[in-house]
Write a protein that binds this DNA or RNA. Structure first.
Lengths: 342, 342
DNA sequence: TTCCGGCAGTTGAACGTTCAAATTATGCGG
DNA sequence: CCGCATAATTTGAACGTTCAACTGCCGGAA
């Protein structure tokens, strides 16, 4: 097997010192164009690639970004994260970064993992997902000056780090307006118990859109844990109250699927107009299930979110100390995907 | 901020040379128990962790395993891979390996990525997914002596490398027998066009189970591309032939979902006995959609598969040159998950 | 002519670890 | 108590790269 091509091989081949090769790679402007070209040719001819480990030893930078891969939780609402991860890996490659996976059961375990990855691998940055109230992770990282971005805004408003999030309220507001335009007035909402940042945010969009239309939201919302069966129960509840709702916006596709069942059943796929006489239902996240069942849902721009995360990190890493433009806090707008259920 | 704890720090603290610390870490048997303990205590007290980059420079080993993350293809059948990846990351951690992600549009691009990752990061091994006929990747890696495992058997039977796969035929056979036990005799199959290893394998299980029961499969199967709409069409086709089928085994949950629609519609979730008078349908992969819709499906043991992949790699990496036990070719049996549709 | 400044490139050291060889410590038979 | 074999530990070098300091060289101002 061919011997390893190192910077020394290239240097010999181009008749220069190793440092000059290094300069061509890292600060091309200091080397005369003529020489630069000669070195570049040698690099190409030999197929040289800088050894990351050696480089890392000197610079302390690994060009590695760590991201957590979560277990497929509920299943329906999972598959969000893996699309995000794919986007992340794809955005990382052109910036010459790579994504390293890790798993962790809870915040404490995750922090232990940080320690390990930082000391053993010199991870350059972390991408945190599933931010929540009393999130101990961001503080820990910030304290140590480790660069990171969160996908999900900080719900406690403590400190301000770069983050990317999707505007859940804008999504549910758009969904609600969509239903208003279709003539619905009594539009219900099935959401999660107050206290989850994401859930409260999504509920607020629905409430705002109704307020905008001058509709009193009293008695129009149901609160329940996530799940299909829970969605069935909550929808039945909404339907048996004083004046029944004619449409429901849901906090998740799981809940929406349940609502769909409680309000007349769903037929999978096959495009066509919404069946008349049924209650309109809109879910959230545009999961495969929604696509399969023909459920109108709200799609998060996950690829875009990933790209932004990486851009923010790259800005931090490549120009240390400099704040990214716009304070590095980016709120993306999700898109309503109209299907057969609304 | 605290200075980096290196092997030198530990050595000073334990009053030994750096090499002794290194020995405690890598070949504890050569160091006297007493000394070993002293060094170990120093390691614990200082929270020392070996720097992977430096170690890698000497040993040429990165303890990094690369795996590809694919785009969320069809959506319904995706979410298989991310469960596998999660399993992989989880299995890697205790073995002190980490999983590095990459993306690639096709085999050629993937091989280019191999080159990059091997020369820049000294990746120890690769986990290949989505094996197919005329797969150029395995040959490339084998030629260069790069350790790898495939999740998915080699469909061309060229060369023999370690692989882990799920016995699709066993799955469809079990599904078919399940239907036979329920009294069905005319059991159809909706599969993909011949030529895809996975598809042919799954079809063969169905055929074998029917043959076992003395049933002629003639006229009982339909061939189509994957997709919900395609499933609808194929199921209609099966239902309008001479003697209609009373049950259908499908090559994927997408197809099954289509079949379900064509044969009377599905109602999401909510447990209960199969509705009478409807045609029984069984899907494949036990995706979130199946769980949500109450579709009986065949679940691949993805976590187990991931664990085996990692075990096979670890065996190769930790004892180079030694063939893993059982030739390192592992076929796992999937499990039927009975729900409301069969 | 002399000296200085700046550019292009080179040299030597260092990052943290492990390997191979050398050195020192320990135990044992005579 | 010596000599020797073997165990335990240390020393020096190396992995591939970049940083900091250095050497030559050329042109221009004094």
């Amino acid at each position: 097997m061919a011997d390893r091509v190192t910077i020394t091989t290239v240097a010999r081949h181009a008749q220069v010192s190793v440092q000059t090769v290094s300069n061509v790679l890292n600060s091309p402007h200091v080397v005369r164009p003529e020489t630069r070209q000669r070195v570049q040719d040698a690099i190409d001819a030999l197929g040289y690639r800088a050894n990351q480990a050696a480089r890392q030893m000197r610079t302390g930078r690994s060009r590695l970004i760590a991201a957590r891969i979560e277990p497929a939780q509920d299943g329906i609402n999972g598959s969000i994260l893996d699309r995000f991860l794919h986007g992340l890996a794809e955005a990382a490659a052109p910036a010459r970064y790579r994504v390293l996976l890790y798993t962790a059961a809870d915040d404490a375990a995750e922090i232990t993992t940080y320690e390990d990855m930082l000391s053993a691998y010199d991870i350059d940055a972390f991408v945190l997902t599933s931010t929540h109230h009393a999130d101990t992770r961001t503080g820990w990282l910030a304290e140590r000056g480790v660069p990171f971005v969160t996908f999900g805004r900080p719900w406690d408003a403590l400190g301000s780090h770069p983050w990317v999030d999707v505007d859940g309220a804008a999504g549910t507001a758009e969904a609600t307006r969509h239903l208003l335009r279709a003539g619905h007035r009594r539009i219900g909402f099935i959401g999660w118990p107050p206290g989850s940042g994401v859930g409260d945010d999504r509920r607020s969009g629905w409430a705002a859109a109704l307020a905008e239309a001058g509709i009193d939201i009293h008695g129009l919302d149901a609160v329940t844990a996530d799940g299909v069966a829970e969605g069935v129960a909550a929808a039945r509840d909404l339907l048996t109250r004083g004046e029944p709702v004619t449409a429901i916006v849901c906090c998740s596709d799981s809940l929406a699927l349940g609502a769909l069942h409680a309000t007349g059943g769903a037929e999978p796929a096959v495009p066509g107009p919404p069946a008349p006489g049924r209650i309109a239902v809109i879910g959230f996240d545009d999961t495969p299930v929604a696509q399969a069942v023909g459920l109108t849902s709200i799609a998060q721009p996950l690829g875009e979110a990933a790209t932004h995360c990486l851009r923010l990190l790259a800005a931090q890493l490549d120009a240390p100390g400099s704040r990214p433009p716009g304070d590095g806090q980016i709120l993306l707008t999700p898109a309503l995907v109209p299907r057969r259920t609304a």
